[in-house]
Design a protein around this nucleic acid. Structure first.
Lengths: 129, 129
DNA sequence: TTGACATAGCGAAGACTTTCGCTAATCTTG
DNA sequence: CAAGATTAGCGAAAGTCTTCGCTATGTCAA
C-alpha cells in the first residue's frame, strides 16, 4: 500500500471540495450532478475521487446513511488558509504582504469590505506598537 | 508532439522560477546550484526542466551566450497575480476579500507594511464613494 | 588536433492524478 | 422473492510531472 497522506488538494479534489462547501453534506449523486455542470466525467470517476479523498482524509462519510453522505473535513476557510500559506511560501518567499497588496489591488471590494480590512488593520496596528 | 501550453507553473517549475526571480538571468549551472540547496536532483533534471519551461513559454534564453542564459518571461508579480486569481477562483469562488483578510490576519507584517496597506486602502476608498 | 571537461538534449522510467469499464452489493417495487 | 435500478468499489489505462542515464555538442588548453 501507499502513503496517500494529504498534501495540497489536487485540481479535481478541489472542485469536489468546493461543491461540498456549497451544498453541505451530500451523497455522491448530488456531488456528481454539480460536477457535471463544469465537466463531463463519468459517475464512476466521481465515486473514485471521493474514495481517494476519503483515503487522504479530505472528506468523511456517513456509511450508515444509505446513499452514503460525504462531507468535507476542513472548512473552506481552513483549506484556503493552507493554500494561501503555501502560495505565499512558494511564490513570495514568505512575504505575505506582497500578496495582500496584490489581492487587495485586484479585488473589486465594496466599501463595507474595505471597512472591514481597515478594522483588521487597526487591530493589527494596535498590537505591536 | 504535444500541446504543452502553459497553465499554472507546476511545483518544480515554480521552484526554478523563484530562483530566477532572485538571481536574475542565469545559466543552468547557477540555477542548479541554488536548486541543490533545497533538493537533491541531478543536473540533467534541471536542464530538462528548463527546456520544458522553455516550451511552455515560462522562460526565455539567450542562445548566443555560451552557457545559455535563462530568464523568466513573467515577473514574480505577474505570476503571483495569476496564481492568486486562480486560487481565489478555485477556493473562494471569486470572493477576493476573504483571501485578503486571511492573508492579512496570517501575516507578521511590520508597521511600515501595514501603513502601506492603509495607504492603498485610502486610495481605494477614495475612488468609488 | 586532441583529450578533458562543461553544457545541451533525447527518450524512457517512475510517481502521481484522473478516468472509466466492469463487477458487486444494496434498494425498490410488483 | 425476483427483476431492474441505484450505489459502491476494484483494477487497470491514460495523462502529467519529475527524474535521470546516456549521447552529442561545444570549449579550451597543451
Amino acid at each position: 500500500m501507499k502513503k496517500h497522506v494529504a498534501g495540497q488538494p489536487t485540481e479535481v479534489e478541489l472542485q469536489i471540495l468546493r461543491i461540498l462547501w456549497e451544498l453541505g453534506p451530500s451523497p455522491v449523486r448530488e456531488i456528481h450532478a454539480r460536477l457535471q455542470t463544469e465537466k463531463e466525467t463519468n459517475y464512476s470517476t466521481t465515486v473514485k475521487m471521493l474514495s481517494i479523498m476519503l483515503d487522504k482524509g479530505l472528506v468523511k462519510r456517513d456509511e450508515n446513511a444509505q446513499p452514503h453522505i460525504y462531507r468535507p473535513v476542513q472548512s473552506r476557510e481552513k483549506t484556503g488558509q493552507r493554500m494561501v500559506s503555501d502560495l505565499i511560501e512558494k511564490v513570495y518567499d514568505g512575504a505575505a504582504m506582497s500578496l495582500v497588496l496584490q489581492a487587495l489591488a485586484n479585488s473589486k471590494a465594496t466599501p463595507a469590505e474595505l471597512a472591514e480590512v481597515r478594522r483588521l488593520l487597526d487591530e493589527l496596528e494596535g498590537q505591536s506598537p
